[in-house]
């Protein structure tokens, strides 16, 4: 017997599948017309992206249909992969070995376990308080003081970004919203769909109308036209998804707007880090998308804000 939320989830997945089928067909057509020998990089990249989307939708849908445990495992693995990419680009060294080992094998699993058992009081301070104080202690006792502040800051940032922020996506499941019991998985779907459609729509608007670069130093492909078109249309997408949320259409639109803004600026911050490190992508895990963080960056910045806004105004806890 299907729950109500599973039916809504299937509706959403059905809609996304339809969009992807259209995108795949359009991609095939464009390829046949403009890039029969696979030399047009824009079209090849587009098709790679669409293919990666299929994988993501299937993974995401599968995990969410499994409920809380599925979501915890999926985002826990995403955190792991993101942390692996992040730490690769840092200047950490021998002296940080134990600090890093505990970041990967203690802090990360404990954070997700705390989210799983819904211990809000601890999972909201585990990284910002306990890890923040304990990691530098571990590095300090190893005695290597070279670039100490930089290394300690890098480990803390890696944990905040890749573990703390990402874990706020499955943490949405712990909110208790009157009249919305048992349907919290749809909040995750809402957040992810709004963030990702904003990314896609900014890309599309930018390719169609993009003229004025918004931050040429950071991200040469981002344009004012792409940003405004993408942000507004993604806000509309979010408002149109109000039926799966506890929000009114207006509230859903407003929250989507905040999500989209945080996502956009999050993308800029993560680009700044990549520039600083001299790389174009965080990794190569997903063809056409770069690494995990390249796909997650906007979710990373919007998830905790979305979580706390909803928690403050809608949740009982």
């Amino acid at each position: 017997m299907m729950n109500e939320h599973q039916i809504d989830l299937l509706k959403l997945l059905g809609g996304l599948t339809a969009v992807l089928v259209l995108a795949s067909l359009a991609g095939r057509l464009l390829k046949r017309k403009l890039s029969p020998d696979g030399t047009n990089t824009v079209i090849e990249n587009l098709n790679d992206r669409v293919n990666a989307w299929w994988v993501m939708i299937i993974l995401m849908g599968g995990a969410l249909l499994f409920g809380r445990l599925g979501a915890i495992l999926l985002f826990g693995f995403a955190s792991f992969a993101a942390l692996r990419e992040f730490v690769t680009l840092t200047d950490t060294r021998r002296g940080d070995h134990w600090a890093l080992a505990s970041a990967f094998f203690i802090v990360l699993p404990v954070q997700y376990y705390l989210v799983y058992i819904d211990w809000y009081g601890l999972y909201s301070i585990l990284v910002p308080v306990y890890a923040f104080l304990l990691m530098p202690i571990i590095s300090a006792v190893r005695g290597d003081t070279d670039h100490f502040l930089v290394r300690v800051a890098e480990v803390q940032w890696a944990l905040m970004i890749c573990v703390f922020c990402v874990s706020h996506v499955p943490a949405l499941l712990t909110l208790q919203i009157p009249g919305y019991e048992g349907r919290n998985l749809l909040l995750i779907a809402f957040l992810v769909v709004v963030v990702q459609s904003s990314d896609v729509l900014q890309y599309v608007w930018g390719k169609m109308l993009g003229r004025t670069k918004i931050a040429p130093k950071l991200s040469p492909s981002k344009t004012v036209e792409g940003f405004i078109g993408g942000a507004l249309s993604a806000t509309l997408v979010g408002a149109a998804l109000f039926w799966m949320t506890p929000f009114t259409p207006f509230q859903a639109g407003l929250l989507s707007f905040v999500i989209v803004l945080m996502g956009f600026f999050g993308g800029l911050v993560m680009s700044a880090i990549k520039r600083d490190r001299g790389v174009k992508d965080w990794g190569h895990l997903i063809a056409g998308h770069g690494g995990f963080i390249d796909r997650l960056d906007s979710v990373i910045f919007s998830a905790p804000i979305f979580f706390h806004l909803v928690r403050y105004w809608w949740s009982l806890t």
């Binding site: 792991f80 692996r84 730490v87 690769t88 950490t92 070995h97 134990w98 080992a101 990967f104 094998f105």
Partner: peptide, 18 residues
Amino acid sequence: ANLNRVMPKGEFVPIPLI
């Protein structure tokens, strides 16, 4: 590339790195 950072000499817990 990078494997020396994954497991420096004398350590027995590998650090995940690309």
